[in-house]
Amino acid sequence: MNELDLIQQLREGDEHAFKTLVESYQDLVYNTALGIVQNAEDAEDISQEVFIKVYRSVHTFKGESKISTWLYRITVSTALDLLRSRKSKKRFSFLQRLFGDNNEPLQEVPDFNHPGVALDQKENAARLFKAINQLPENQKVAFTLHKLEDLSYQEISEVMKVSVSAVESLMHRAKQNLKKILEKDNEE
């Protein structure tokens, strides 16, 4: 079944087409979400949310881009939304602690271990993921899509709706920032 047929059947509410879509793209969505939020439970939750959004908004998909590009976009925005809401909650709980409303200590985020990393690289990868977490949003997205999903700069530019040169610049800055963060970590 080609993409246009699949989309057409999805628009008609075909249950089988939806199952085909989910089974074809669930790993793509899950892996992307996992790379951004760095938590398996959250990534699963986001993946489900992505497919629910797809189910509800398939009639708005014009078919100008590939399904995968569309899915990457929804996944990235859903994952970033979750991170933003977590950040604002964290800030709020910090303020609560500051004013003595909430005396619970802030939870330390545990090291993230991606299941696809080779055993001998686990420790280094955990350090890298920790550093990736400190990057600005768009650098994090570009770097994650390139490293975890093996997307080319051209594909990333389509997902992020920016030019290829903008992606090149994002990747360059991401690498520079990661180097700085890791070197600082090494010194400590």
Binding site: D27, Y30, H114, L148
Partner: peptide, 17 residues
């Protein structure tokens, strides 16, 4: 450390997704 993700495999969605 920067190259530690060079051979990474795609994580699979949980079973019965």
């Amino acid at each position: 450390i920067l190259n530690s993700l060079s051979d990474i495999r795609r994580a699979k969605a949980p079973g019965f997704f």
